[in-house]
Design a protein around this nucleic acid. Sequence first.
DNA 1: TAGATTGTTAATCGATTAACAATC
DNA 2: TAGATTGTTAATCGATTAACAATC
Lengths: 210, 210
Amino acid sequence: MRKDKVSSAVIRRLPRYYRHLNDLYLAGVERISSNALGRSMGLTASQIRQDLSCFGEFGQQGYGYNVENLRGEISDILGMKRGHTAVLLGAGNLGRALLENFHFERSGVTLTGAFDVAPPLVGQEFAGVSIHHVDQLEDYLSRHPAMIGVLTVPHSAANRLAGRLVACGVKGIWNFTNIELDISAPGVVVENVHFADSLLALSYMISEAP
Amino acid sequence: MRKDKVSSAVIRRLPRYYRHLNDLYLAGVERISSNALGRSMGLTASQIRQDLSCFGEFGQQGYGYNVENLRGEISDILGMKRGHTAVLLGAGNLGRALLENFHFERSGVTLTGAFDVAPPLVGQEFAGVSIHHVDQLEDYLSRHPAMIGVLTVPHSAANRLAGRLVACGVKGIWNFTNIELDISAPGVVVENVHFADSLLALSYMISEAP
DNA sequence: TAGATTGTTAATCGATTAACAATC
DNA sequence: TAGATTGTTAATCGATTAACAATC
């Protein structure tokens, strides 16, 4: 039975399901039971069946799940086939690391352009993506609408640029700055990648060890 | 009353508490009630008091919490004052972005050295940190023990290097590779920063919007 | 068919919220 | 002092696990 509102705990597990199913698929595995998948992921079979039941019925009694099929269903659920487009703001070290090393297309996202203010960067190209001046942002987005804005700018510029992205119709902000954006627009979501928070959580965990 | 085992939901909120309290401190705020802090963080006052009660009694009836003091307590809880040291493996784009732009010391962590296999990188220095050859890892760590290993290597090398770090006594691995490490050693924790999972969660959320 | 395994309902467990006596 | 606000206990809510009829 499909649920109206899927809990964030379930949403956070979906990419992991996708990753594991993709590994299984690449390893040539054809079918898998909730039990076996649970064992390999460290989850209960019950939880997997419960999670999947939020979105539909993908299995078959007595058989389990077809790996390729379930991978496809989850990639659908995650929106990987929607052709989402993205722009990146801030072509500093981290921005360029994403441009050159992160495979946006493996998540079904097409990065169409990047922006910065530094004269030596503007006009350059990284992994086939051109760097424009931030002044061109509105003009560019009016011609190439994007669903996602990737924020890899200094924190002092973050909120202002986030506002401009939202004004241009961006629906999701992938925020790498270590501040909390205040986005008031309805229907716009922020996904934070807070390095410092992550490192501090690790610091806590190793400090607790006996 | 101090809890034996603090739930991971609480642990994940601690760095956010620290960040907000630090902002308040820098803004010159002297005291704050659980109610006011909750309003600014989007949490209930109850939850904040409940969370803090896992670690001790830091407030005062009728007054609230002293910002500087509470910030200090949380920084203690997070292990920020323990002088944790770290090494970084993989000085590619992402590794160098961390070396040059991420302030480890703001989380109380000292990054002492970095490692790579690429000849042109070995011997160079970024933000005061020297790049050694990975062959020197064991030798280096025997002379400069580290609590944390930062993994910014290609995924094919991740598990092998994680094993070597653990063998050298590293207690926590900050994993930026998009695979799940299989660490068997007891008392070693892995903190994952899975970019792809994060982007897919964002993709899901914007795909759901009405 | 018989064994396996699903989707779903019920039971349990844990986390969040509410309430309130204690007290600064 | 009186008002404010804590720490904690109790109540509620939500998420995970267990159980099982349905069925491939």
